Computed example of a mutant assay.
Amino acid sequence: MTINYDGRRFRALNGGDGVCAQYNQRGDLVWSEFEGGHVRRGTVIGTCDADGVLRFAYTMVLQTGEVIAGHSTNWPQRVGGTLVLREVWERYGEHAATGVSYLEEIPR
């Protein structure tokens, strides 16, 4: 699945808690800034392969002041016509955790 992520916006599946990210892409480099809900500010940066799979490093500061860092791999899929990213993530440090999240594209 060839995907250009430039200008696309994503949020947690079914609306989540208000965090919204707008992606930018130049060649295989993809990055985004995000905020909303429990996140004061966050960033992701990484690469996109020929199948549209994203490999990111991320950092964010929560409303509580906690600083979170980690990495994720996101696989694109179509669900009812909507682009959805299946995000497998890992956090480092004192907030270490792993999980799976789903991000849906916000229609323009």
Rank of each mutant, 00 (worst) to 15 (best):
T59R: 13
G93R: 07
G80R: 01
E33I: 01
E104R: 04
Q77N: 05
L85G: 02
T43A: 12
G46A: 06
E35L: 06
C20K: 14
N14M: 12
S101I: 03
G42T: 01
E87Y: 07
V61W: 04
L103M: 13
V44C: 12
G16Y: 04
M1P: 07
I106E: 05
N4P: 04
F56A: 09
R26T: 10
T73E: 14
G93I: 00
Y23W: 13
G16D: 03
P107R: 11
G93S: 09
G81F: 05
A57F: 13
T73N: 08
V84Y: 05
V44G: 08
W31H: 05
Q77M: 12
M60Q: 15
T73M: 13
V61P: 00
R9Y: 00
R40V: 10
M60G: 00
D49F: 01
A21C: 04
S72Q: 10
A97W: 05
Y102C: 06
E104L: 02
Y58V: 05
E104S: 07
V30D: 02
V67K: 09
N4G: 06
N24E: 10
G81A: 04
V88Q: 15
D51A: 14
T82F: 00
Y23V: 05
L29V: 12
F34H: 08
C20A: 11
G42D: 03
T64K: 09
R26W: 00
I45R: 13
R26D: 07
T2D: 10
L54F: 03
E33C: 00
A21T: 02
L29A: 08
N14V: 02
E87L: 08
T2N: 11
F34D: 01
M60I: 00
G37L: 06
R40W: 05
Q77A: 14
T64M: 08
T82E: 04
F34W: 08
V61A: 09
Q63D: 13
Q77V: 11
V79E: 15
M60N: 12
R78N: 06
F34G: 01
F10L: 04
A21S: 14
D51R: 13
E94Q: 11
I68W: 10
G7W: 06
E90N: 11
V39D: 04
H95N: 14
L103H: 12
C48N: 11
T73V: 15
S72H: 04
A97Y: 06
N74L: 15
V67R: 13
Y102G: 03
Y58R: 08
Q22I: 09
Q63V: 13
